[in-house]
Design a binder for these strands. Sequence first.
DNA 1: TTTT
DNA 2: TTTT
Lengths: 114, 114, 114, 114
Amino acid sequence: MSTLKNSVRLVGNLGMDPEVKSFDNNRKLAKISIATNETYKNDKGERITDTQWHNLVLWGVQAKLAEDLLKKGDEIAVEGKLSSRSYVDKDGNKRYMTEVVVNEFLKVGLKKQQ
Amino acid sequence: MSTLKNSVRLVGNLGMDPEVKSFDNNRKLAKISIATNETYKNDKGERITDTQWHNLVLWGVQAKLAEDLLKKGDEIAVEGKLSSRSYVDKDGNKRYMTEVVVNEFLKVGLKKQQ
Amino acid sequence: MSTLKNSVRLVGNLGMDPEVKSFDNNRKLAKISIATNETYKNDKGERITDTQWHNLVLWGVQAKLAEDLLKKGDEIAVEGKLSSRSYVDKDGNKRYMTEVVVNEFLKVGLKKQQ
Amino acid sequence: MSTLKNSVRLVGNLGMDPEVKSFDNNRKLAKISIATNETYKNDKGERITDTQWHNLVLWGVQAKLAEDLLKKGDEIAVEGKLSSRSYVDKDGNKRYMTEVVVNEFLKVGLKKQQ
DNA sequence: TTTT
DNA sequence: TTTT
């Protein structure tokens, strides 16, 4: 799986503890959502904060590491892949959602920020 | 706007010509969707192709370049930012969609591939 | 200047305080060197640490931020560009060196690590 | 080996055919050098081209692919790791050089460029 | 030493 | 739903 064709890098904070599921074949799945906070000045010189929420999916070893190391509020750096999938909602409508399938993450702690 | 906190890189092909809109303030907006194709071998040694479609949004100069240079089938490399937004669909339901807001793109042509 | 054609991303620790120079035109230059530490297991299952040192160059606003915020031992994430240049050493020989010209950095603090 | 701590991405042209060596243990090594060409306008509005040369090292499967697919003039996209090493030159002096150890490459062909 |  |  090529990192040249599809790669996402994010630095952000977990909005909640990881949700972890275990499957029959011993595979683990963890879901986390992180917020990236970026600040900039608009045309009028006002300080604007743009917060984006991202849904991350981790499998196997990465899921285990997330379960053991991460909790709500923690800051992480991640590298992964953009992945979209469709599902059927409770009203029977087809919906789409986009997730980042994580290859790797680091727990960091932003001390100061520019 | 930090490329350290939120950055996406994709190499893929346009599924259709760019859709371009012009606004009163002379700002231009282009929307394109690209497919990234990755191949790998599964557990059984079978060759699998994973095709992902991505919605890209371009503003200003990048929108103008897309309008002038790109058409259906073209291959591009892009760098941008993950951005999610909500909207209300025709049935009055709140929906979410995730897009890549493009900072920069290159028209490339994959000659051969590994 | 394209981030698609030439981009370097590093997470590492400063080996010394930044060296800062100011020029006549008010331009500032900061030089820092950081070590990236990566650990892996070799063929024999032994834990190996690969430490690489990188020379970073910062100009203008980034140099000012480095001067104000960074000191020996700090951990940073950086995005920049690979740049090589030649110079003449004290014996009159032509030498080459490779540096990373920084576009952006974040001060981080790796709390735990995988 | 983490792509979060040390990652380089380049798009450029080979200055010569790959140099390939084979070792006793069947390991292959390929060396290539590529030029990245970036153009921008300086303060006076003049079009400037900044050409940087980069030394790339490929091992194993990547070396084989380079040997089979690449030749002088070809354009490639690569992802790898910054790596510096010292060596002793013919006059007995210690020298340093910086290389990019390639994880992955794609042969591309830039048709048009912005 | 490449390319546009 | 996070963080500064």
